[in-house]
Amino acid sequence: MRLDVLIKWAAIGWTLAIFVGCGWPSDYPTEDIITVNDKFIHFSIFGLWAFLWLMVYRFPARLFVIGVLYGFAIEIYQLVMPINRDFEWLDLVADTGGILAGLTVGTILMRRLSRG
């Protein structure tokens, strides 16, 4: 299997894993789990999401918009579904920061690799 196909499937799988993880019902009241660690997790998962998709589609501005909309949609999903989760602006901020970081790292890496 070619590497680009493998990365594309990894990006698709990671996108689905984010949705499943963020949509999983919580056993704890939301106010009990708001931590710095929670925001770091959001930052990390969306950073990897952006990095993987950038390796597939090399349009960072489009991926930024798509990623922020995806994070926003997940927050809306958490608000409307009875899964004991709430919409949190700070989660969306962490998602956005992760997207920016993933796109930045991916862009730098691609430039360095293309130079030889």
Rank of each mutant, 00 (worst) to 15 (best):
S44T: 14
F72W: 06
E75K: 06
P29A: 07
A94Q: 04
A17M: 10
Y70V: 10
D95I: 04
I18L: 09
I34K: 04
L3F: 13
R111W: 11
H42R: 05
L3A: 13
M110A: 14
F40I: 15
F64K: 06
L109A: 13
L109H: 03
Y57C: 10
I66E: 09
F43H: 03
L69C: 14
G67F: 00
G102R: 00
I45A: 00
H42T: 04
L79H: 11
L90C: 07
L16A: 09
I83T: 05
F59C: 13
G98W: 02
V56W: 01
K39Y: 12
L52N: 00
Y28V: 13
K39C: 07
A17S: 13
D38H: 09
D91S: 06
V80R: 03
F40A: 12
L6S: 14
D38W: 03
I66H: 08
R62D: 11
L69P: 06
L63N: 00
G23D: 10
I18F: 08
T96Y: 08
F59K: 15
M55H: 06
L52H: 00
Y57W: 15
F46I: 03
Y57F: 15
G102V: 02
S114G: 03
F87K: 00
S26H: 15
Y70M: 13
G97T: 04
M55A: 11
F19E: 01
S44I: 07
S44Q: 07
L92W: 05
F87C: 04
N84F: 10
I41R: 07
M81N: 12
M55L: 14
G98P: 06
L63H: 00
T35M: 14
V93F: 12
M55P: 00
V80K: 03
A94I: 10
W14D: 04
A94N: 08
V36Q: 05
M55D: 02
G98R: 01
N84L: 07
D38R: 11
R62C: 13
G47Y: 02
A94V: 11
F46M: 08
L113N: 05
L16W: 07
F46H: 02
P60G: 02
G102Q: 00
I74V: 13
M81L: 14
G23I: 05
Q78E: 12
T104N: 12
T30K: 10
M1V: 15
F59A: 15
L90F: 14
V105F: 07
Y77R: 04
T30Y: 12
F64L: 15
M110G: 04
V80E: 05
G116H: 10
R85M: 03
I83L: 11
S44H: 07
I18A: 04
S26C: 15
M1D: 15
W9R: 14
A50S: 11
G98L: 07
L92A: 07
E75T: 06
I41F: 11
